[in-house]
């Protein structure tokens, strides 16, 4: 799976499990709830759904997601790239467990091109 696809799977709206219509207060409330649940090591907080399958949720990811959505410009970009997890493609994984055509299908190289970077 490419960096860009992984970056897409880290869309803050997926991480926080919020719709694109979420208000600022809802973003902060959801972030606070996930951080609290992760701190208590609750199973319900460990994974989140994406069109590319479930991903691990970490406190860093939650904080980053909250910060991204606080910035109107960045939020607009995330809204542009958001697809409801249940509407997204579910390509069959190849040998290394990643959907080989997902990048091309979604134009994800463009994310790398736009300066998106891989986080830890």
């Amino acid at each position: 799976m490419s960096d860009a696809a992984e970056r897409w799977a880290r869309n803050p709206l997926y991480v926080l499990e919020l719709p694109i219509s979420a208000t600022r207060a809802e973003i902060e409330r959801a972030g606070q709830k996930w951080l609290a649940m992760l701190e208590l090591d609750l199973a319900a907080a460990r994974l989140y759904a994406t069109p590319l399958g479930p991903r691990a949720r970490t406190p860093e990811l939650v904080r980053e997601a909250m910060a991204e959505l606080r910035e109107p410009d960045k939020r607009a970009l995330h809204e542009l790239w958001w697809l409801a997890p249940e509407d997204g493609p579910a390509p069959a994984p190849d040998d290394d467990g990643s959907p080989p055509d997902a990048d091309a299908a979604l134009g994800l190289d463009a994310l790398t091109a736009a300066g998106w970077r891989r986080g830890a």
Binding site: A25, E28, R29, Q32, K33, A36, M37, L40, L42
Partner: peptide, 12 residues
């Protein structure tokens, strides 16, 4: 401290 009027309390 919370700006939100309805924050979460999570406990175990």
């Amino acid at each position: 401290v919370s700006s939100d009027l309805t924050p979460h309390v999570v406990g175990r």
